[in-house]
Amino acid sequence: MHLSPLHMHIPDGFLSLAISIICWAFTIILDGVAISRTNKSLGERQVPLMGIMAAFIFAAQMINFPVAGGTSGHLLGGALAAITLGPWAAMLVMTSVIAVQGLLFQDGGLTVMGANILNMGLVTVVIGYGLYRSVLGRNQTMKLVIAGLAAWLSVMGGALLTSLELWLSGTAKLDIVIPAMLSVHALIGIGEALITVAALAFIFRTRPDLLGEESVSAKGGRGWALAGILVTLIVVLLSPLASVNPDGLNRVAMDLGFITTAQTATGPLAGYNLPFLGKTPLSRIAAGAIGVLVVLGLAFLAGRALRKKS
């Protein structure tokens, strides 16, 4: 039984060590915050709930519906989990799902698991919950439309991040991998959006209490809306930029010191440098990562400040 609905699970060996470590760092930080948040806010009753919900996401990924030409629509579930469980719990649930896919079914590698969790489990949750949080208080149609959009964007965000990681690792050519990944996942994302919207509509009809205003807003502050919109903007702006102007992005990455290893390759053994020992300036890589972290941190602080005012 094949369980992976998306070709987004990166296997071992496809990412360079530096990119793997950076992705692990993001994943560990986000999951660390998620753990401390859930430990504070949730009772011990919630842990079995999250476990069953992880099994639910796993099982729900098997649900498919036929689309034209032998292809089928699937669910990834990040956005759905985020909206129904809240962002922090959903992050841990998605982390566990992807960990089991990698460990038990070899869907995705072990050393690159940080990247897989980041792409499919964390970014999807930030976009999914963030956008949904921003339309809280509106009518149900609006909520469902935004939930669908968020589900589609979450798949696109994951695909974009996957392509960028592959490219920065020197595994894929930017001007091929970005259009290929994004066009395929634009279609896959429609399936995701349709299933997410229909599932939410079903829950609204049968157990509206689970999606009540208070229960959703209690799970994450208003900063989430900001974070979601910010990440969405990055995805929306970066995707066309990367597709239309790969040279520009290439130059940025070169300036940041990411792909000098690939550029200096001349023959066997000469091209590959350990990021920590070779010519690649580690300081620049670290600077890039720290820059992203600072932006994230600022967004988070801004979110907290906004929440306190409200």
Binding site: P48, L49, G51, I52, M53, A55, F56, A59, A60, I63, N64, F65, G73, L75, L80, T84, G191, L194, I195, T196, V197, A198, A199, L200, A201, F202, I203, T206, R207, L210
Partner: peptide, 19 residues
């Protein structure tokens, strides 16, 4: 797609109540 979504919603509720 709607039927698949309803199935996912149904599965969610059954899992939730089972937990």
């Amino acid at each position: 797609a709607r039927v698949a979504g309803n199935m996912a919603g149904q599965l969610f509720l059954r899992s939730y109540e089972r937990s």
